[in-house]
Amino acid sequence: MNTSHAIGLDIGGTHITAAVINKTEMKVLDFSLCKESFDSNMPADQVMNIWKKVISTSIENSKIKDITGIAICMPGPFDYKTGICWIKDQSKYEHFYGLNIRELLLETLGFPSDFPVLFENDAVCFGKGEVFKQQENLSKKVMAVTLGTGLGACFIDKGTSMDSGNSVPADGEIYNLPYKGGIAEDYVSARGLLSHYKSLNGRDLNNGLELYSLAKNGDQQAIQVFERMGEDLATVVIPCIKNFAADHIIIGGKIANASDLFLSSFNKIIQKSDLKVEVSISNDSEIAALLGAVSFLCD
């Protein structure tokens, strides 16, 4: 059997992760995983140069000469068919609004204009990847949630992602669901955590990691902020779990690494609702996202 390889990219508001994936076995090639943090609000050409460096390093380390495609998990709003970015006023990719990322990427890498490039929602990629990682999920209804710069979600029914119909929110998104006079992402995201902390004591923090460190060092207000986020997340997803009749909810994204601070309060609200749903935290959101992205190339 011929083995083909593709590049998987997980692109977020503050990072890029790249790896070369064996499409036949759906496995990340040894030594090909490469990642870098960056400020996505830099000018577009500077961001593209960072992407180029990470992608080139990944290919070089993999020792693979023949790459057959690129699969990219990208946050929205984004036109995943055309590759045009519509992210605006979200504290990320401020200089990318209206740009064709497919054309920019191929030009930056020096690839031909017809080289296969596929874009998919980052939360959908994460959910699909988790299903590949846990084969028993192929027979279940799974809701996957990503917690990071924003709030992502996807709904997977027996391995197929669902973004329309009466059982899921519009476009399979939950970030924009009305919540507490705003939207869910105002409260369940890095921005929401930092905003809540500032409302308690007036301090501006740089990022979620700083807040996590404070909480781990006993800052009661920081602990309270994470616990409240767990409650808010549960309140947001309960109607979705019920409507979709989900068997399993999987939580991933960078903030999932702080699950020791919010999972207990999340589970308390879930249990009060009398829902019978399995709850788990992803042990590697990035690998799941990369595998999920490349799975769409296989489709």
Rank of each mutant, 00 (worst) to 15 (best):
I238N: 13
D260I: 00
L290S: 04
N61R: 11
S265G: 09
G69A: 15
T14G: 03
E185G: 03
G172Q: 10
V168P: 10
S167A: 13
G127K: 08
G148S: 02
I251L: 13
V142L: 10
L233Y: 15
A288K: 04
A256N: 07
L9P: 04
A246G: 10
C85M: 04
F155W: 08
P178Q: 06
H248T: 15
A256S: 15
G165W: 03
A215M: 02
S273E: 06
D163F: 06
S139P: 08
H196N: 09
Y187D: 09
V54E: 13
W86V: 02
K92A: 01
E94N: 12
I16K: 09
I174M: 13
V142W: 03
K180W: 00
N166G: 12
L138A: 05
G218V: 09
D89H: 01
G129Q: 08
N49Q: 09
I84T: 14
S113N: 15
T82Q: 11
I55F: 03
K128P: 00
V188Q: 04
T14S: 13
G150P: 05
P116T: 06
V28R: 04
Q134M: 00
E136S: 12
D30S: 01
W86K: 14
V236K: 09
K254P: 03
A246F: 04
T160S: 12
V294G: 07
D163S: 12
I174H: 07
V131M: 04
H5R: 07
N121C: 11
L151W: 06
E107M: 08
